Amino acid sequence: MISIRPARPGDEALVLRFVRELAAFEREPDAVEAGEAEFRDALFGPDPAAEAVIAELDGEPVGFALFFYNFSTWTGRPGLYLEDLYVTPAARGRGVGRALLQHLARVALERGCARFEWAVLDWNADAIAFYRALGAVGMEEWTVQRVSGDALRRLAGA
């Protein structure tokens, strides 16, 4: 049986484990800089930056989703942005990913969000096909832009 619960204090190590497994799957195993303390602060600190939910299959944690709000100036309403979704290899194909996305879609509606959005790597054909089957539409004309590290400091004039 699949259940979805909010992450709670004490889940930082689990979230970090899933993030590291996701990074390895995404061919970036050494890219994770965050540790348990960063997740504790980001999820449960005085000014949380994000939320997470944990998927359990027969009582065992098998995946998670981490999300936060964005805002649409066109709709004048918040949106829910899915930063990470991960299901362990052994639990894939058992409905866990669908359950996580359905849960977040309900959260988005309950909280008055106009949109539910996420990014997917262009080489992840299985995920793209799965998302299309759920009704997601690729934003083909849009590309993600990012400034980080030294480029961010230069842009800030720091």
Rank of each mutant, 00 (worst) to 15 (best):
G63Y: 00
E60M: 06
R40Q: 06
I4Q: 11
P61K: 09
E28Y: 11
I4E: 13
F39G: 00
M139F: 07
F116C: 06
A108C: 06
A108Y: 03
R8W: 06
L16Q: 01
I128Q: 15
I128P: 07
V53H: 07
A105F: 09
W142L: 14
W74D: 07
A129S: 15
R92F: 02
G97V: 10
E83S: 04
I2T: 08
L82N: 05
G97H: 05
V53G: 02
P78V: 11
V53P: 02
A136E: 07
Y81K: 00
L155F: 14
R40P: 00
N70A: 09
R111C: 08
R5Q: 05
A52E: 06
V137A: 12
F25A: 03
E33M: 12
A42Q: 04
Q145P: 03
R27F: 02
G138H: 05
G157W: 09
A119D: 13
D58I: 05
R153P: 00
D150H: 14
I54M: 07
E33A: 14
Q145V: 15
L101I: 15
E36G: 04
D58M: 07
W123I: 08
A125W: 07
E12Q: 13
D58Q: 10
F116Y: 08
V147S: 06
T143A: 11
D47S: 14
D47L: 10
Y86L: 05
L22F: 11
A125Y: 09
D11E: 11
T73A: 13
E140K: 11
E38I: 04
L43V: 06
I128D: 11
R5K: 08
D84R: 00
T88C: 10
G59W: 08
P78E: 02
R40S: 04
A108Q: 03
G93R: 10
E21G: 01
V87D: 10
L82I: 15
L80R: 00
A127Q: 13
A23H: 09
L134M: 14
L152R: 08
A136H: 07
A49H: 10
E83L: 01
W118C: 07
L121R: 13
V120W: 06
P9D: 03
R153Y: 12
V32R: 13
G63I: 02
W74I: 13
L104Y: 05
A129V: 10
P29V: 08
F39N: 03
A37R: 13
L22I: 04
R8P: 00
N70K: 09
L66I: 07
Y69R: 10
A23N: 13
P78K: 00
Q145D: 12
R40V: 00
F39R: 01
D58K: 04
I54E: 03
E26Q: 10
Y81Q: 00
E21Y: 01
L80C: 04
F116R: 01
V15F: 01
F64H: 01
P9G: 02
F44E: 01
V144D: 15
L16K: 02
E36C: 03
A105G: 15
L101Y: 15
S72T: 06
T143S: 13
R94P: 08
W118T: 09
E21S: 08
W123V: 06
L134Q: 13
V96W: 04
E110D: 14
G59I: 09
E51F: 07
L85T: 11
R40F: 03
E38Q: 14
A49M: 11
E140P: 01
F68D: 01
C113L: 02
T75H: 09
P29N: 12
L104W: 06
V87N: 08
P61Q: 08
